[in-house]
């Protein structure tokens, strides 16, 4: 499925990351998944939260630069080789993966991964054709 991810610009300086995360905590927002891409001077904090539009407005009000990006959330059996199968299928069909990161899972048999690709619909089609499509919203936003 396609979900909305929040990307937040964070300076690569002591205390900047905790500031954002604290702001989310104070607003009672549960972070379902997160990752950071960083360089020596800045980072991009990517988070998956429930009600992404509301959280984006909240952060913007506090002066943060936030972008909403559609990403794929893919669920798979929590067994060795599952992620490899997904990525192999995408690679074989020439789908360029920008980045991936993992989700907190409440279901002990399932693993969830966020995947960023250029064309979400096409990637979903590829996964469906390979019989690799399982996720449902309930799991992700639980």
């Amino acid at each position: 499925m396609i979900i909305k991810q929040l990307s937040i610009f964070v300076e690569n300086k002591m205390g900047k990351l905790v500031d954002v995360v604290e702001a989310l905590g104070k607003a009672g927002i549960d972070i379902r998944a997160q990752s950071i891409a960083d360089t020596s001077d800045f980072g991009i904090l990517r988070v998956i939260v429930t009600k992404p539009d509301e959280v984006a407005s909240l952060l913007r009000e506090q002066g943060y630069i936030v972008r909403l990006t559609d990403v794929l959330a893919v669920s798979m059996p929590d067994t060795p080789g599952s992620l490899a199968k997904v990525l192999r299928a995408l690679s074989d069909e020439n789908v360029d993966v920008e980045y991936t990161y993992a989700f907190v899972s409440h279901n002990k048999d399932k693993a969830y991964v966020v995947i960023r690709v250029e064309n979400n619909e096409h990637a979903l089609e590829v996964l469906a054709n390979h019989g690799l499509l399982f996720a449902d919203e309930e799991d992700i936003y639980k």
């Binding site: 991810q5 990307s7 610009f9 891409a37 360089t39 991009i44 630069i65 972008r67 960023r116």
Partner: peptide, 10 residues
């Protein structure tokens, strides 16, 4: 940084 110049990719 400005909202217009910010993208999701490093």
């Amino acid at each position: 940084m400005t909202p217009d110049m910010f993208t999701d990719e490093v």
